[in-house]
Nucleic acid binder design. Structure first.
Length: 578
DNA sequence: GCCGTTTTCGGCCCGACTGTTTTCAGTCG
């Protein structure tokens, strides 16, 4: 099991605990290391095994101190410094910081004065009117905290991109209609296409900020207004997410867009570069002394800082700035580059629409081809196909291909058994155009068993791709335990494509792992995993995921047209990508 | 605690808004 996430959580918590003690600078250092670990495609345990402490120190933001703490964690499963801090301040850090308006200083004060450790303690104290007796706190803050606790209870955590994007798009349409508004953009994690979204950020160019702010805070979707100033306002949406609005003059729009797109770590690095060059960078522009030398658009800011311009998806402070300095950023796959959808289910198993309906909708969306990949028999609850049913489906597709204006490939999503065996005979698999294999059960096997299981499936000469390789469901189910480097090595060796599943619940493989797999020469397909015609539009989420994984068009096999894609499938697996 | 085409020591991003204040600390992004 990858240790990166667990370590990142500990370092985030250490950052907060240090901030409570008002230790200067260290909190940022721990926070940065935590982000870096989260973004890493390789297991720190593997790095440590291979290269020891010096290997760990190569991770950005990790120096001697944090490398040693990682070592302690890998050896003993705990970090003494973390335990010590936690003992001094035994509070639910992540729970309490999630409450809006509550930060490290407040948490410390609440613990010292009222022994508040949990969100529940906080709620009880607020209801009893105890908070107002603490210095610098009052009745209004008490109310604010209670409201925020309630909001957290009903809308815990972050939204998936798939939920947030449609909300954002509808708000943009609404803002565009306000008179005097010249441009509207959404920024923040949504513009970076992050897989989960904490809140929505909107930027507007208008010479009448008040009119825009008033309209924004009185939208019907607004449940509460949490801040309203001259140019900045914040609201809580009924949908369960916060939204911020900034109104700006045109000359600052690019700077603001850059600034509010983030990520935070990316921006901090950018400002350091600005300082080194004798400039100052803020949301109003890039300044040399009093003079604004850039700010109307983002590109000129990056250029003036000596950096290649870069798409938002790359701005995670995980090597993109160094690459931009050397003008060696990848040319990313574009949103229009994917020509076919290679994983779809129909009413033959657990889908909602017929083959014909799916094909029609795919055609309407501009795709050149679609593969029908219904489940197979061991997934009984989906009425999975056996060999006979698959052959019947192939005949049906042959008929449809004669009249339909889109190429339909026959296929299957073959189920991988506990030991890596497949539930459809090689003979029938060989008759299908496109075979994806995936794991749907036995999620808790050891890393060794799970890795061997997947590799065995990849060694089957008929398996063209592994669908949703880790089976994770965002915020619901963890990835299965895998030795990813072994899996990627085997995928490259056997010529098996790995999927970037576009379903917003899955997005599997995730960005960091795609980037890692690419280093092994792995090729990918981007699929919607659509179970209905409506879900065929999910493709953009998968493309975003591949872009976040630094993929170029050539890394994604289904950017090929139908004929070229078919030609690739004709070749023996091991000869396809050499 | 991290980091280095100004540095291995001495720096470490920047501004808006709120609430409780008589001038600012805390939080957020």
């Amino acid at each position: 099991m990858m240790k990166n996430g667990e370590l990142a959580k500990i370092f985030f918590e250490m950052a907060e605990l240090l901030a409570m003690k008002e230790v200067p600078f260290k909190p940022r250092a721990f926070e940065k290391a935590a982000h870096s670990l989260e973004a890493l495609g390789e297991d720190v345990a593997d790095i440590y095994k291979r290269e020891g402490l010096s290997g760990l120190k190569k991770i950005p933001g990790v120096g001697a101190g944090i490398a040693e703490r990682i070592e302690e964690f890998l050896k003993h499963g705990k970090i003494p410094d973390h335990a010590r801090l936690k003992k001094q301040m035994p509070v639910d850090v992540s729970g309490l910081t999630a409450i809006e308006g509550v930060g490290p200083k407040t948490i410390r004060l609440l613990y010292k004065r009222l022994k508040i450790k949990t969100v529940k303690d906080l709620e009880r104290a607020a209801k009893a009117g105890k908070l107002r007796r603490i210095p610098r706190m009052g009745v209004k803050l008490e109310e604010k905290i209670l409201k925020s606790v309630e909001f957290q209870r009903t809308h815990a955590g972050r939204m998936t991109l798939g939920e947030a994007l449609p909300i954002s798009r509808s708000i943009i349409e609404r803002l565009k209609k306000i008179s005097g508004v010249r441009a509207v953009e959404s920024a923040g994690s949504l513009r970076r296409w992050q897989e989960t979204i904490g809140d929505l950020d909107f930027l507007v160019i208008s010479s009448e900020p008040e009119r825009v702010t008033d309209a924004f805070t009185s939208m019907p979707d607004v449940a509460a207004v949490t801040a309203k100033g001259e140019t900045k306002s914040s609201v809580r949406l009924r949908a369960g997410i916060n939204a911020d609005l900034r109104v700006l003059p045109p000359e600052s729009f690019g700077a603001a867009l850059q600034y509010f797109t983030g990520s935070k770590d990316h921006n901090v690095e950018l400002r350091k570069i600005a300082i080194a060059k004798g400039y100052k960078l803020n949301e109003y522009g890039l300044f040399k002394g009093e003079r604004r030398i850039a700010g109307t658009n983002e590109e000129e800011i990056y250029e003036k800082l000596g950096l290649e311009r870069m798409p938002p998806e790359l701005r995670t402070n995980s090597g993109e700035i160094e690459a931009a300095e050397k003008h060696r950023l990848p040319k990313l796959i574009d949103y229009g580059d994917v020509r076919g959808d290679c994983q779809t289910q129909t009413i033959w198993t657990d889908g909602a629409n017929s083959i014909e309906e799916m094909a029609e909708e795919a055609k309407r969306l501009g795709r050149d081809y679609i593969a029908i990949t219904d489940h197979t028999k061991s997934l009984a609850m989906t009425h999975g196909s056996d060999e006979a049913k698959l052959r019947k489906q192939m005949a049906e597709i042959a008929k449809l291909n004669k009249k339909s204006g889109i190429r339909i490939f026959t296929g299957a999503e073959v189920n991988i058994a506990k030991d890596g065996a497949l539930d459809i005979s090689d003979e029938v698999l060989g008759e299908l155009d496109f075979v994806g294999a995936s794991v749907h059960s036995h999620f808790n096997l050891s890393e060794k068993e799970q890795t061997a299981r997947l590799i065995r499936a990849m060694e089957n000469p008929h398996v063209d791709a592994i669908f949703h390789p880790t089976t994770r469901v965002i915020q619901k189910r963890d990835a299965i335990a895998l030795d990813f480097d072994e899996v990627f090595r085997a995928a490259a060796r056997t010529g098996t494509m790995l999927e970037a599943n576009a379903h917003p619940w899955r997005l599997d493989l995730k960005d960091g792992l795609i980037r890692r797999a690419k280093e092994f020469g792995v090729k990918f397909i981007i699929d919607t995993d659509a179970h209905s015609t409506a879900e065929l539009s999910y493709l953009e989420y998968g493309i975003a995921q591949a872009r976040r994984g630094w993929c170029a068009k050539k890394d994604i096999v289904n950017t090929l047209g139908a004929a070229d894609f078919a030609e690739v499938l004709e070749k023996p697996k091991t000869k396809r990508f050499t």
